[in-house]
Nucleic acid binder design. Sequence first.
DNA 1: TTGTAGGCGTTATCAG
DNA 2: CTGATAACGCCTACAA
Lengths: 354, 354
Amino acid sequence: MEDRTINMEEQKEITIYDIARHLNISAATVSRGLNNNPMISKATRKKIADTAKSLGYQSNTFASSLRSKQTHTIGVLVPRLNSYFMSSVLAGMEKVANLGGYNLIIAQSLENVEREKTNALTMFNKRVDGLLISLSYDTQDLTHLELFFKKRIPVVFFDRVGSHTESTSVVIDNYSEAYNITRHLIDQGCKKIMHLGGNTHLNVYKDRLAGFKQALADHNLPFVEEFHLISNLSEDAGSNAAKFILDLAPGDRPDSVFSANDTAAVHCMIILKNANVAIPNDIAFAGFNNDPSSKIIEPNLTTVDYPGKTMGEAAATTLINHLKGITNIYITNLLTLKSGLIIRASSLKKPLSF
Amino acid sequence: MEDRTINMEEQKEITIYDIARHLNISAATVSRGLNNNPMISKATRKKIADTAKSLGYQSNTFASSLRSKQTHTIGVLVPRLNSYFMSSVLAGMEKVANLGGYNLIIAQSLENVEREKTNALTMFNKRVDGLLISLSYDTQDLTHLELFFKKRIPVVFFDRVGSHTESTSVVIDNYSEAYNITRHLIDQGCKKIMHLGGNTHLNVYKDRLAGFKQALADHNLPFVEEFHLISNLSEDAGSNAAKFILDLAPGDRPDSVFSANDTAAVHCMIILKNANVAIPNDIAFAGFNNDPSSKIIEPNLTTVDYPGKTMGEAAATTLINHLKGITNIYITNLLTLKSGLIIRASSLKKPLSF
DNA sequence: TTGTAGGCGTTATCAG
DNA sequence: CTGATAACGCCTACAA
């Protein structure tokens, strides 16, 4: 008697055998029917579906994965979950994955290689069909992904990408955009441009810095090492940059700032505004990412459109198409998405000319 | 000869049997050793671990899950991935889950019950150990979760919660916070307060509206139906609210706005500011969520602190503790997190008094 | 402390 | 078109 509640909890799972028994057919047929195998007659397929429903059958994904060696699960490994950009990326990925019948296992490295390593390993052990990854701040090489490469589990990099000849990377042209936005500042008459940059181990920051430098060089402006502030580009980093600027004698200050992300730019602007620095007249500003905050800060921030959702969709689509045999990521090496300058008031020292 | 490359790709997986063979012990011992079962001598455990590593063994999670009926995977089902709040929640969940040895399968309903239904079903079929869910805009009842309830797979609701006596919900006190923020506006001399609200099917918006109404009633102010605008609280909804206000004769306009989220509030403010409406003097503003944008808009937006990361951590912890048998969600019904008013310039018609 | 044997639920192979 | 049977890789009584 005491067992009754336990028995109720521990109901046996309904399996294809139960369905088979009910219909006096074999489990193999049920399996095929459930998978809509055209070899099975429409009539039996329907019968199978019906009794499956009436019995409350729910397929067991493991058992299936164990045999078929397919999980229909994609691993997503990102530095941090909580940024506007990353959540847009994930939204795009989830949409595409769901449409294609895939699920997403998501983990964050918190900018730490070790966590990236262990997360990659668990995903491997969960036998994800493929991996979508944006590298952590710390990551210097790709040895922790060898497991995937060796077993030919497809890996698609996005945003912060690694160089691996047999994988595809999805990016925007960070170099050109940085070049263009710097040139725009120069066009506005800026001559002393400060750059808030990130760790140059990472392609995104390295490329943005390179584009920035090249634009300076092409316009005969010197690159001033003291005006290249490297940080994690957080809110605090932006505030600190502002303090750095305010500590300079007014004559020594930069006439503009190009930040490698909007967050730092915006928080730098806020402090400077409080100190009565006029933007853009005293100091012009340009950011990167087109974060929502760039449209809220006053003056609105000039920035580079970084289409997160599109990037997520592109990365997921690339991976899934590869999994489905439609394309092959071992052939394509780089997928560069369209991006573009968004010019707003924060950088306009003179009216836009046509 | 032609087969060689194929053979290289299709390397057999290394299994516990391979390890067993290498060491001339049984697979059972290997299995136990790998799981650090204390019954196995330290020496053999070490030998097992070593050869596992040297053979490049990777455990197969399915096979394990198939037998043990545990997946160490938690399903997370949210309305939308791409909001600051939700990404904070996810960041909190992921952190806790990872620490506890769990993985997250994440999907979004895109505010659509049907997607919520199918996503819940796939998660069920993937045999998640538990489910963390915030309901879609559309969701009216919980029938699609019956599967979980019946099998006693624990479900923890958060933010947009459903009422189910056998599940725990993690929330903040929306009612009180709305009451308090409304009272704050009234204290500032506001008498015609407009409310930008969401669908009142959802607890969060229903409670915020109720708190708002009660505060009005307690201060002998009428609730004006025309000043209750229901929308999805998007950027556009905020802009539309602004247009609605501007279409009113200045004398008929509200003297303040309490928005059920910051996004709508901020975008409403932007339009009004462009139309030279003075904030807070002409119209005071209060929002909800403490979105980053609330600290960027000028004047800074008065709002309610909504601790996303904490909520994610709390929901995940509750679920995992239940799974580990430490606590029991069938006993606790509601977990109310600390929140609080954040008063900023957007609502201060008169100086703060002490 | 270790080994044996059987089964978890599905799918693949082969045969009819 | 359908059935029988053997895996898939691991875990767990039970036995030794």
